[in-house]
Write a protein that binds this DNA or RNA. Structure first.
Lengths: 404, 404
DNA sequence: GCGGCTAAGTTCATGACCTGCAGGAAGCCC
DNA sequence: GGGCTTCCTGCAGGTCATGAACTTAGCCGC
């Protein structure tokens, strides 16, 4: 239980946050509607909005005539009040983007990575270079950049001075947060890529409106972002959500994590293709993983082996989903990741049905299973929402720092 | 994201709650220590404590001399300020207990249940009878009873007017909350028995001090209580934590839930004994489940079959724990339930080791695996903490209702 | 084009609250 | 009994949300 006092100042900050969040999330709103939405008195709304307007964080956005009376003035968060940067450190590239507060992309930079195990220093160099580069390209004043969110494909410990373990990159206890912070004054927040994509999907994709949800990502690897009570769940040291390494077949296929029978070993694209090969299926050695996977899906009608492998995959995946349904009782599960989407586009109804057979009746009746709406590029977008979330939480900048 | 205003009254309530909770949880404390603990100003502590004293919720409990100066007066929550009732609706009995605020048992009543599928009306009758009976036996004034927590072995939907599905009792969508509320004026809170036992364990047992924990219960059935951020996690409609029906062996043993390969089918006592039988082991048909299980454990040294079944059980259980570790990244896992304890008492180090082999390195390093410290009777104790939690959350009774 | 009407937004006095500070209370030591 | 230490409380000052009265802004009908 949280043991922390509340002062009259916390109250104001909290109310600023409520107002600001409401304006940000629920589109342009009038003061009147804000009062209703937040159940704050009209007087307080007026007062707080006045403050936010004076600081430049919020601006007027036209008005709507109200039958007979004074028209309501609409308010929105000023998109140009501040900017945020999102970076994605992937296995094949570093991608950096700047957004304004409405999350419109202003500039993008991509650095390809050739080596399979890039040195952390290289990634840091690219991220910092990208940061400079996009800020310059978008002509954004540097002191108006709220922060940079960095998504990385690995286990991230502690969001503050994040330490990263990434098997796919060959990183072991890399103090990425500290390394990045040493190279710039802009606040850094590091998080797992699955989490940031989940974040993006919750704000702008298939997760909108849900408060308890799971965003499941199935690609070469398998991961999930857990959202409980409207906020991302991270566990003690923020490495929660390793869905891919839950056991669905005790004593089964070996997994690169060292254990056996992991979900990832069965429904990860690599695992699926490997199962196909073992079953006698033929994979064109010239194809990359993605093409091979698509070829497998296209062969379903002509090849019994392909059909069986795909059907099995649906079953395994459903078992993984049923675990989530039973354990978390979420209101929504969102399926994404490149191979997850390829499967989902073709077999979503069958997956739903299979989950229904394996999950408990009651929690299954309360969940809806949807496909991700955003593409892979949303990883950086989600990373960039981290500083925005911070802004909304605090109800603005600290010290009541005014604009212009 | 929570969209709710904060008023000056919420602030006071929150601070009352902070003070009250701190006094309750951290034993007798002086005002001075309270100030430190809560970071409230000494003046506010004095003010709030004065109010709580006047209401009779808090009382002085002797004093401690402080080297040289004025001795500090210790404060504690007055155990006799109010009373709470906990009820357990199990498969073989209904058990009702009254506690004072220090959770000392004042009276207990138990009604045995003979039929395997008792009518909900019978359970309701016993609970209400038990409520009357313990209140009378303990000579507790009825208007001083804060509420009754009711633990039931099944899926409980919505803590308010709870609807219960309990396969073991043969109940389907039983509106237990409403049925109980119709028979008494005392506020009712219904919850899953695994959750209430978890609650008891978190407050008074092996979970003390942890904020992200899982209490895993292994008996005939298998369940878990999830605690995240210091509070019980319930999901959208409060049926989270169905750990027993996560798949650990896709296509494996059938489970009574209708699916196959569920953890419960492998490590639940029934599943273990069944596996023993299938492997050629002999179970005395005269034994009940518990005796048979103990006999099995005692045979490990003499019977290779028993040894293998137990070793397998440890492996399956470890897989279940590894799932929890990977998904939740908890700081503690507490193993309980009657067969879980029997296993844990003998094999805890081996279980820990097996979990370490299956879970990811990082989250495993952050978790500790412990045994439950409270017995089966703690189910009712945990249920009784529900109204107490309510009291602490609200910083006292509503309407500033004074005592005596 | 002017009063009447409606609805949106603002001003102001009020009461609730926490805080810092000064002072009171309660013990000990010399 | 004076000085000292430590704990606790009363008081003035400042912050904040609120309800009620008030102002602003458009429309309507004549």
């Amino acid at each position: 239980m949280d043991v922390r006092r509340t002062t009259v100042r916390d109250m104001r900050r909290s109310n600023r946050s409520v107002i600001l969040t409401s304006i940000y999330r629920n589109g342009p709103l009038s003061r009147y509607e804000l009062g209703h939405e937040t159940s704050l008195s009209a007087a307080s709304v007026s007062n707080l909005v006045g403050e936010l307007l004076a600081e430049g964080l919020v601006e007027e956005a036209g008005s709507v005539e109200s039958d007979g009376g004074r028209p309501r003035v609409l308010l929105r968060v000023a998109p140009k009040f501040a900017y945020v940067v999102g970076a994605e450190v992937g296995e094949t590239r570093v991608r950096v983007e700047v957004f304004d507060l409405s999350m419109k992309v202003l500039a993008t930079t991509v650095y390809p990575i050739d080596t399979p195990t890039p040195a952390p220093e290289l990634a840091v160099k690219y991220v910092l270079q990208g940061l400079e580069s996009v800020i310059n390209a978008a002509e954004v004043p540097k002191d108006r950049v709220l922060g940079m969110g960095v998504a990385v494909a690995g286990v991230v410990e502690g969001p503050a001075d994040a330490v990263v373990d990434a098997q796919t990159l060959g990183w072991d206890s890399v103090p990425l947060g500290a390394m990045l912070a040493a190279g710039t004054d802009i606040p850094i927040q590091v998080d797992n890529g699955a989490n940031t994509l989940g974040q993006a999907e919750m704000w702008f994709g298939a997760g909108r409106g849900a408060t308890d949800a799971v965003v499941a990502l199935v690609g070469s690897g398998v991961g999930a972002a857990l959202v409980t009570g409207g906020t991302s769940y991270r566990g003690t040291r923020s490495s929660a959500g390793e869905w891919g390494h839950t056991t669905i077949m005790y004593g089964g296929r070996r997994c690169r994590c060292g254990s056996d029978g992991c979900l990832e070993a069965y429904v990860g694209a690599e695992g699926v293709l490997d199962r196909y090969r073992l079953a006698g299926g033929v994979v064109d050695p010239g194809d990359d993983e993605e093409s091979a996977f698509i070829a497998l899906l296209d062969d379903v009608d002509s090849s019994g082996i392909a059909a069986k492998v795909v059907q099995d995959t649906i079953g395994y995946l459903a078992a993984g989903f049923a675990d989530l349904v039973n354990l978390f009782n979420p209101e929504r599960i969102v399926l994404g990741g490149w191979s997850g989407l390829l499967l989902g586009e073709r077999y979503l109804p069958q997956i739903r049905e299979a989950v229904g057979k394996r999950a408990l009746r009651q929690p299954y009746a309360q969940v809806s299973l949807e496909l991700c709406e955003l593409g892979r590029d949303a990883v950086a977008l989600g990373a960039a929402t981290l500083p925005v979330l911070h802004l909304l939480r605090n109800g603005g900048l600290p010290h009541h720092q005014a604009a212009s």
